[in-house]
Write a protein that binds this DNA or RNA. Structure first.
Lengths: 333, 333
DNA sequence: ACCACCCCTGAAAGCGCTCTCAGAACAAGC
DNA sequence: GCTTGTTCTGAGAGCGCTTTCAGGGGTGGT
């Protein structure tokens, strides 16, 4: 409960104080501070000077009340269960958003959005405290169900649409580069442990993989995972079982790659001489595994910054922005 | 800029609507909704019913404006440089806070607090948009410099004080348990790679280490680190150089332990037969390293939940709350 | 000198809510 | 019946800001 919170009274300069100090009316002061209507240069200067001298800062609550604008950016993470909120990837997005929003007096909220509850988006759209919404891991059907009154203040980290701009790493390019490296280093029986089907970010890498295999006349050996280390273990085991002669594995995430590495280690299969392993994300620990993981970077903070900036500025941006990924060559491939 | 944001007009039930529907005055409606003054049972029921029927929810901006309460919880991370904000640990705290605050219409902001700029705390104290402050990694001098008008709405993750409640993992206990395990498994030349001196959370584990060594009549072999993997590598190298006969290393963080593991691997020193390694935090990848890391858990989300709950409820809590850590035995020790 | 016109400015009306204060309604006591 | 006391309720005054609207004071044209 926010209300009934005692707070010591420190007199904070109000717009009236500024107006009085500058010898103008409140309306005029407001006009120059918020910068909309006309004002003569002299008046403007006087007001700005007075505001500076008094250390004036607008009261966000009052402003929000009258403009009807909100003061919270909600990060809505789509997933099957609320567990998605514990993902380190989500943590990074939230932290980046919270850092960028702070100077604007905008706070960040984190919410889980069920795949089957698009009504939650309506609630957010109607909530006067919500400034804008940042969709994470959204699907096509959810993006299509975004209420009209939310358009213009919602973006997506992942896929986008003409209405809802998307910001994402160049998934396809990263996968292609990784695969090219694997091929160039002589691998010819390359398997892939993919992300979950329902996640759109899984599609591009898989397409890139299939395309690369077809182009080189190699067989497709694909096994589904869910980005977790456990699924990486399971995926690796399945690959080994179905195609024992595999000589390289491309995992859709570093966590899965690390899980694969563990299985390989347990079975005494040498990496990279027997099987090469490549991941995706370049998490901090990728450099510390044994052997150190070859992987493509995922500039999460940059992507989040792009998305948040678009939201804060309410600027028009292209339907999809791709951020370059860089292949980091280490020992595993 | 929050202002000037066009927003489609959807009529949202206001307190006046509820009052009218219930056939009472706005004051009465407010009284029962916010739950302060007296009200007859019948009136109360009518208002509650009307509010429910109309789907009424108070406008946080209006409420904040009149009560003077803020709607942002700011997570202030203390550190030498703004880089501390990129720490995965901080990410987890922020995410947990953002999740817990969301239902209360409170947003989270993340800010860096320089060790030498206590004035920033004054700014927060005077900012009408800040509801409360969550200090992370704070030092004694900063905690002592917290402005009086902020007391009651500031807590710390880490050390606390009678005025500023602290929430932290039982650092000392975790260290003692780890050391006891090392000793019980026959290790007698145990070194420690500590956290940075200026961070209070470094003290307890070091004290526990020194105490354990003294109690067992063993020599103290301590080397400073800064919680990063790089410092773990450097620390391990130094330990090996100064005390070649070391048979166990206790690192103040998993990242450092993983760095140590890498050095040991490079030098062909077997873990755990030659040297045992134990970490602290139980990060996700601790289970995936080779060998899998023995480490003590650090319930960050729980701790953050305790701190945020105290802040949101404005409740009186003990000066210091310790959260139990559990030793997870894996292969490295 | 007069009018039209434009640029600036200030008065005032709220935004939705909380909370004080005075009055209404009723019960009890004499 | 009248006073005293006790609940409960409603009128109203803002919180600090934006924004409409009407008017004031110049300038230029005739």
């Amino acid at each position: 409960m926010i209300a009934h919170m005692s707070r010591p009274v420190v007199h904070r300069a109000t717009l009236d104080d500024v107006a009085r100090a500058a010898g103008v009316s409140r309306s005029t002061a407001s006009r120059v501070i918020a910068g909309y209507g006309p004002a003569s240069a002299a008046t403007r200067d006087r007001v700005v000077e007075a505001a500076g001298r008094l250390g004036y800062a607008p009261n966000p609550a009052a402003r929000a009340l009258v403009t009807g604008a909100g003061f919270r950016l909600v990060v809505a993470v789509i997933g099957a269960t609320p567990d998605v909120l514990h993902d380190p990837y989500v943590d990074r997005v939230v932290s980046a958003a919270a850092t960028l929003c702070a100077p604007h007096d905008v706070g960040v909220s984190l919410r889980w959005l069920s795949l089957h509850a698009p009504g939650d988006l309506d609630k957010m759209a109607d909530d006067p405290s919500v400034h804008s919404v940042l969709l994470v891991n959204t699907t096509q059907s959810i993006i299509d169900a975004v209420p009209t009154r939310l358009l213009g203040r919602v973006v997506s980290i992942g896929i986008g649409s003409p209405q809802v701009p998307g910001f994402d790493v160049d998934n396809g390019g990263a996968a292609a580069a990784t695969l090219a490296h694997l091929y160039a280093s002589g691998r010819r029986r390359i398997a892939m442990v993919t992300g979950p089907q329902w996640m759109p970010c899984t599609h591009r890498p898989v397409e890139a993989y299939v395309a690369a295999m077809h182009a080189a006349g190699l067989p497709v050996r694909s096994v589904p995972g869910d980005f977790t280390a456990a699924s990486g273990r399971a995926g690796m085991a399945e690959v080994l079982h179905r195609w024992p002669d595999t000589d390289a594995v491309f995992a859709g995430s570093d966590a899965m790659a690390l899980g694969a590495l563990a299985v390989l280690r347990e079975r005494g299969i040498d990496v990279p001489s027997d099987i090469a392993v490549a991941g995706f994300d370049d998490v901090p620990f990728a450099a510390l595994s044994a052997p150190a993981l070859t992987t493509a970077t995922h500039p999460v903070e940059e992507i989040a910054a792009g998305a948040v900036t678009a939201l804060l500025a309410q600027s028009r941006v292209p339907p999809q922005t791709a951020y370059a990924s860089e292949l980091v060559l280490r020992e595993s491939a």
